[in-house]
Simulated assay, not measured.
Amino acid sequence: MADARCSCGALRLALPDKPHAVIACHCIECQRRTGAPFGAGAFYPAAAVTVSGLGKQYTRDAASGGKVHSYFCPNCGSSVYWTADNLPSMIGVALGALTDVSELPAPAKSIFEQSKHHWVGIDAAGEHFRQGSVVRTSS
């Protein structure tokens, strides 16, 4: 099992060893959520993830439709994971929250590139999308 945690360790996730997908997102909301030029997340089947501790939830409208529910630690403020109404079987985990990234693959997709900073390049991504993309839940 892999795991993820906030800075202070109060909010933790036990995860399967390998994510279903790794995606870089350049939407304005991910930029605001992370305070960085893009957000990057590993997606895991929700049924296989165990959350320990209480996260504070922030819900917003998603550019791709539906709502996105972001969870962050109320103690240290770290953004740890999120769920989306249009992808209920998956949980997105902030790459920076993962405790071991030694086997983590590069992002397979780079999405919402219409708001990508001009100097950012995600060359390893196999697919690039001007707007959103669908994460397929079957292999």
Rank of each mutant, 00 (worst) to 15 (best):
110 S>G: 09
99 T>C: 01
104 L>I: 06
122 I>T: 12
15 L>H: 01
65 G>Q: 10
130 R>C: 01
74 P>R: 00
34 T>I: 07
88 P>V: 05
47 A>V: 08
135 V>R: 13
79 S>L: 14
133 S>K: 15
73 C>D: 07
15 L>G: 03
39 G>K: 01
110 S>K: 06
49 V>C: 10
61 D>T: 08
126 G>K: 02
24 A>Q: 00
50 T>S: 13
131 Q>S: 10
124 A>Q: 04
113 E>T: 02
125 A>D: 01
39 G>E: 03
3 D>V: 06
49 V>W: 14
29 E>R: 13
78 S>E: 05
131 Q>R: 09
79 S>F: 13
125 A>S: 04
8 C>E: 09
37 P>Q: 06
60 R>E: 07
113 E>F: 11
112 F>Q: 11
94 A>F: 10
132 G>I: 08
135 V>C: 11
74 P>C: 00
22 V>L: 06
5 R>P: 14
75 N>L: 04
95 L>G: 00
108 A>W: 09
10 A>D: 09
136 R>Y: 10
87 L>Q: 06
45 P>L: 10
5 R>Q: 15
43 F>Q: 06
134 V>I: 13
30 C>G: 14
21 A>R: 08
107 P>Q: 09
114 Q>C: 15
24 A>D: 01
66 G>F: 13
118 H>W: 05
98 L>T: 07
101 V>I: 12
124 A>W: 03
43 F>V: 02
138 S>F: 15
74 P>G: 03
10 A>Q: 10
113 E>R: 11
101 V>D: 03
4 A>I: 08
124 A>K: 02
14 A>K: 12
31 Q>R: 11
55 G>P: 05
125 A>P: 00
8 C>G: 05
8 C>F: 04
39 G>H: 01
132 G>A: 06
67 K>E: 15
65 G>P: 13
36 A>M: 06
108 A>P: 04
117 H>C: 04
104 L>Q: 02
27 C>S: 10
118 H>C: 08
116 K>S: 12
3 D>R: 07
49 V>F: 12
25 C>L: 00
16 P>V: 05
118 H>A: 12
52 S>G: 11
123 D>A: 08
100 D>R: 00
8 C>Y: 08
62 A>M: 08
31 Q>L: 01
113 E>W: 14
100 D>K: 00
130 R>L: 04
111 I>D: 08
111 I>N: 15
109 K>T: 09
104 L>N: 00
132 G>D: 05
95 L>D: 01
73 C>T: 11
94 A>W: 12
97 A>G: 04
96 G>A: 02
120 V>T: 07
136 R>A: 07
8 C>M: 01
5 R>H: 13
122 I>P: 05
91 I>L: 10
40 A>S: 09
11 L>F: 01
56 K>S: 14
127 E>Y: 06
138 S>G: 10
110 S>Q: 10
